[in-house]
Design a protein around this nucleic acid. Sequence first.
DNA 1: ATATATATGTTCATAATGAGCATAACAATA
DNA 2: TATTGTTATGCTCATTATGAACATATATAT
Lengths: 354, 354
Amino acid sequence: MSSGDISSETVIGLTAVIVAVTDETPRVLVARRIHHDLATPAQQGRSAAPQDRPDTLPYGPFDAQRHRTLELGLRGWVEEQTGIRPRYVEQLYTFGNQYRDPREFEGGPRVVSIAYLALTHETPLAGTGEARWRDWYDCLPWEDWRGGRPAIVDKIVRPALQNWIRAAPDRPAREERRERVSVAFGFDKSAPVDYVRCLERYELLYEAGLVLEALRDRLAIERAQGRKPSAIDSKASAAAQATGAPMALDNRRILASALGRLRGKLAYRPVIFDLLPEEFTLLRMQRVVEALSGRRLHKQNFRRMVLNADLVESTGHRDTTSPGRPAELFRFRREVVTERAAVGVGLPALSAAE
Amino acid sequence: MSSGDISSETVIGLTAVIVAVTDETPRVLVARRIHHDLATPAQQGRSAAPQDRPDTLPYGPFDAQRHRTLELGLRGWVEEQTGIRPRYVEQLYTFGNQYRDPREFEGGPRVVSIAYLALTHETPLAGTGEARWRDWYDCLPWEDWRGGRPAIVDKIVRPALQNWIRAAPDRPAREERRERVSVAFGFDKSAPVDYVRCLERYELLYEAGLVLEALRDRLAIERAQGRKPSAIDSKASAAAQATGAPMALDNRRILASALGRLRGKLAYRPVIFDLLPEEFTLLRMQRVVEALSGRRLHKQNFRRMVLNADLVESTGHRDTTSPGRPAELFRFRREVVTERAAVGVGLPALSAAE
DNA sequence: ATATATATGTTCATAATGAGCATAACAATA
DNA sequence: TATTGTTATGCTCATTATGAACATATATAT
């Protein structure tokens, strides 16, 4: 626990993306307080008001003394800090880029963070009260296509990325940028967006300077190297203001990575059921899938798919809370996992329907 | 670099699973030499002959001073040690279980290892000569179903796992074991094996004591705790001798994890092409997919799928080396990645054909 | 020429998918 | 009580994808 001024030191941390879905909004647990007084230099300078500070993901150091495995370490402090015992926990990715923690600039250690995805119900929060549930799409607004192609994509992201393509130093670089944009967002061609490539999209926006974190980091690096701050494209800067809520460190990248992983997993593992209550209607289930995948689904086909796959069985109960014909309540049929190889909700390849 | 006797110390390492496919065998790069004189206590005691020492995966410590990112760190020492510049590199998983490095028993630090998957051609090896290519299925023989259900599954794995199920302490535990076995290997039901669940299968064998590493670790822990070595089921022990080549540390677990990841990726990202030469016949491509997925595929359907998906284009050349009608040579159409969302070889759901 | 081995092309039945139309069961209201 | 709005549920149809078999083409070796 000694604070090192030898910058060769390397520290391992655990970061949690804790997910729940209420009605139609996917939520992640965030803390307003910068954990361990972690703040960007700019923020320390300005001593920003609490409401200006970007959110962080729940974070805890990994204590090799106390925990036999990484996952147990994560579960440990998550429960201590938030009272949550996630139903599902999965390791996401290990982030170790230089300067992902700005304290490195002042000789702080390199912090390598192992990110985990955790699924739960939305629960009343124990603990300090600094934690709260936040709409996932607040931070990644370009990922929500449920109402059709989001306005932000056409009005902000697309023109800004085209500027960025044009601004490439030479032709090969331009071509490479064009291809990456095309793959991630599917603009040019008739190809649909691949809703699973969330991380690629975020990284593109970051490189193009279209998220505030990119400007923040560029500035910090230049300052630390004693260089003059480079000019910032005013158009890009304005765009960066509009691309959703920034987060501390690389936490938004982690969020994007988690969303992509979860979207991918939906299709072949029965993870939705870890986000649903014991009994649920098929529409409720559909809404949760839609919330996470960010797309609308065809109601009858969704129904057919779920029933034909024997994913659920009727409980005999009905939901009478909504107007109209009461819906049947179902429960997850756990047996399916032993019956078939891939168990998931099988999202359609592209289209948006309803 | 100071060797710590404070066991709270934690060290980050990078482990590489470097894959190539020659003809019909998938290969991974292994080193016979135990890296950094790393050996299990048992091995140190017996001072095993070199050919008795289990292989290890290429490993290097992560030096935060020298490398901006984890991936660059990995690429760095991989090229230094082996001369290989992989065409594709992807982070796999971070392994941090207690005692994954047996030196912990003697006060050594907890070693958390970030594993990477790397794809390349099989290349003549530079460096010490300690490294060599090894058939992946030497270590995971139960994963190769190309010749139908492997003998080892029926003769050894299945009966041993059924013993293990019976040996559960109580009924719920027995039920849980039964379900896990069923999901991983698909014995009971008509369900096919899910060829992607390699890690689950390995972990099952490990828990059931059916791989030598499990016996090794159990012994080491008991010895370190001063307990009397527990009796080892002689049947299980015999089985463990027959379940393929053991590896040092948890390297076989990492191998299983890599195989599963790669199998999954095949279906929706064009990773095969990083294992193929510039020009190849469709049969060659099929053989590579089969080698990795561990299953035989229907030739005509594979052909149709690849061609209809516009994954490849003819080079106009032909392969005249084999008897019979010469095969057309194709190259990868890079453009497809911008044309469609999921680009891969779309393995069929189950069956084995030819 | 003939046998043999491989590559390539075609067809067919079946299953999965996307989309629309039709009906059923409730509540609120006229 | 009849009407209307709202949601759930069921059915059909065209299109496409998939698994499998059969048929043909082009080479080498004898």
